[in-house]
Design a protein around this nucleic acid. Structure first.
Lengths: 270, 270
DNA sequence: TAGTGGTCTAGACCACTTC
DNA sequence: AAGTGGTCTAGACCACTAA
């Protein structure tokens, strides 16, 4: 009897073998894989073919490599769960906390002021921003672009857009690193008599652009989660439109809601 | 004066050029890229190097290739927006519709009965399922695994888990393809006196496993969105725990909510 | 059947890390 | 300095698509 031929290309077969070793735990997360030369010897192929195999694993986000260093099974970081509760009014209204910091404390993580850098600027509204804020395209708006890190590693960007007449002269136009003072951005709106009351969040995933990949220092094969958030006052005025780009492996979003019943006069959209 | 050396490897440079052409619209979505041989001539590199460049674009989900066919800029399908409204009680309670179909009709898409295949079975609860349903690990549960297609192309899988005592003998254990009769799964629970009332949805993204990649016929570089959905009755009984795996480029999720206020006696978690 | 993309080899050189 | 991964060439062969 003869062995049936393996239809897979050699680089795929090697990649599958390595992935199986990782999935089964034979190679633990963070552990080093065999060197290229070792795999060359084991499989009887050239170094280039081994490199192709490892490339497949990198594209799939299974391993990371450092030139000269080695190839390592990627650590699986625990997902940070983000619930609607992170926006709780009691935090920023009564206790002057900043929503995202409180969230981080809950999950037992460190916070350093330098973990958030930001660039504040005025610019004409792009089509997406205009739609989000409900202003004509090209209207001058204030943007506040943050890059958030955790223990020195970038986790996500969050760019907020505001109407000029809302935030002119407030702390939100202050480019000092770190959150915008007592209560964060929401605290500012509270003081302005524009209390945040309702939100819409839209989520989707895609592969990063090269620029995002560089800014967030994403490993190969890491997708990003894009969040579009619109914040309204009780009378329906849009006070903030924000776009976040998150390293996908670090976050998950949780929403809790009552099933809507349009036949029951449940007027406010759920 | 001399040209400063380009630090990028040639394959990266070529990939960047092609991506720029696609992003700028010079190469429209669905349009064919230059052939390998043409790029070899244009850049003065070998076919292998061009292939590496194209490989980068495939990993990034920017292009698709068919052996012998050519390389094409990937079509950007419009995202299908999923709002909380898709669960509206009026649909499945009063009009006997199935939530996801109504959703599809809204977005103007076709629906065919064969667009949903399913496998119903009984099995012991895995750790995740046990946690989701609130039963001990290993308890026998009913699973209903669907593969949903649109115009013949798989878009997502959705596997629901139910407690045996809830669905024993109901339409939900009927393996016939297509939704579970009038009002879908929710309709069944309504008839049983277990009216769905509240939900929790958790969302995150990752790269697909090889199995998911095959089942959903995902192009290289396409991430998946994972949805965990738990459905409760008004008294807090869990009636369904479902896990969905979605081709990320086809869906986005939208949530609309009031900002919670834990200091205002707002007891039901939003 | 001609043209396309996909895979692999053998060998070279480079950049980086580790010691 | 030795070892590691990363890139590229030149050439070959294969699998698939389209005319």
């Amino acid at each position: 009897m003869t062995t049936p031929p393996d239809p897979r290309p050699a680089s795929q077969r090697i990649a599958d073998d390595l992935r199986a070793a990782i999935d089964s735990g034979d190679i633990a997360p963070g552990e080093r894989l065999p060197t290229t030369r070792q795999l060359v010897a084991r499989y009887g192929v050239t170094a280039e073919t081994v490199r192709q195999a490892v490339l497949r694993l990198k594209s799939a986000g299974v391993v990371t490599s450092r030139q000269g260093g080695g190839v390592y099974a990627r650590e699986q970081l625990p997902l940070k769960r983000l619930g609607i509760q992170r926006y709780d009014k009691a935090k920023w209204r009564d206790r002057g906390e900043v929503a995202f910091i409180a969230d981080r404390v809950v999950s037992g993580r460190e916070y350093n002021r330098n973990d958030q850098t930001q660039v504040v600027s005025r610019l004409p509204a792009s089509r997406a921003v205009a739609a989000g804020l409900g202003v004509p395209e090209g209207t001058e708006v204030v943007s506040r672009a943050r890059l958030v890190k955790e223990a020195g590693v970038p986790t996500h960007t969050l760019t907020s857009y505001y109407k000029v007449q809302h935030v002119e002269g407030t702390r939100l136009e202050d480019p000092t690193p770190g959150p915008a003072g007592k209560g964060g951005g929401f605290g500012v709106f509270l003081e302005l008599g524009l209390e945040p009351h309702q939100m819409t969040e839209e989520l989707y995933a895609r592969m990063p652009t090269p620029a995002e990949s560089a800014e967030l220092e994403l490993p190969a094969g890491e997708p990003v989660m894009v969040l579009h958030r619109t914040t309204y006052t009780a009378d329906g005025t849009v006070i903030e439109y924000a776009v976040g780009v998150h390293s996908a492996s670090r976050f998950s979003w949780e929403y809790n809601f009552l099933i809507p019943d349009s036949a029951a006069g449940d007027s406010h959209a759920q």
